[in-house]
Design a binder for these strands. Structure first.
Length: 207
DNA sequence: CATGGGATTGACT
DNA sequence: GTCAATCCCATGC
């Protein structure tokens, strides 16, 4: 269980999105296994980097292996891993985690969140969405640009726990480039954000 | 400087 | 199924 290094991220964002499934996100004593991701790339209009280099997209065009954290709908912080070489705007959105460590702290943060769920969130409600997992872990905008290899938020490879099969399909919640099958998730995993029809199944090679 | 649109979520009809 | 909450920042005047 070691932190993924920048070279891992400095590749095709689709490969990174697939391979991040099964890895572990850790922050502030809490951790979870990535069960759902989405890829974004500057050449397609759903990506923030599509419009080019602006103050907002600065992190996306920066070095690979950094966290791109931005505010969504004025409310939620969404966590991405910057990919591809410096100068290329691309990132993987972390959309859901299977909670592993610090469940009670996650529950506490989700319990007293804005929007305040009426009942205590169950385990499968803690991190089953991109806004939920940042809230559960306590990840905020101040972590934008930080190093995912050696910073406060880390992503660790989990060699002993590679998923057997991964499904792919269209990304969630976007209005542009809606047909690209750039969402990846573990089929039948109860911690995925929303059940959806897959358009393809990926069986990882044994290598 | 004013406006408008989200890579969402939880509550409610 | 519908809807509001709420803020960063791109765009346009």
């Amino acid at each position: 269980m070691t932190a993924l290094l920048p070279d891992f991220y400095a590749r095709d964002v689709l490969d990174v999105a697939r391979e991040l499934i099964g890895c572990c996100v850790e922050f502030n004593g809490a951790a979870g296994i990535i069960v759902e991701t989405e890829a974004y790339h500057e050449r397609e209009p759903a990506c923030h980097a599509y419009i080019g280099l602006t103050p907002r997209t600065r992190t996306l065009f920066g070095p690979p292996g950094r966290a791109y954290v931005y505010r969504s709908y004025g409310i939620h912080a969404l966590l991405n891993a910057v990919c591809e070489p410096t100068g290329v705007g691309a990132a993987v959105l972390i959309r859901a985690l299977e909670p592993e460590v610090g469940l009670e702290a996650m529950r506490e943060r989700r319990w007293r969140s804005r929007g305040m769920p009426k009942r205590r969130p169950s385990d499968s409600e803690l991190c089953s969405g991109p806004g939920k997992l940042t809230e559960a872990l306590g990840i905020g905008l101040e972590l934008n640009g930080t190093d995912l290899s050696a910073g406060a938020v880390r992503i660790l490879s989990m060699a002993e726990r590679r998923p057997s099969s991964i499904l792919s399909g269209p990304r969630v919640g976007i209005t542009k480039a809606v047909n690209l099958p750039w969402r990846f998730w573990i089929g039948d995993n109860p911690y995925v954000s929303r059940p959806r029809t897959a358009t393809a199944a990926i069986v990882p090679s044994s290598s």
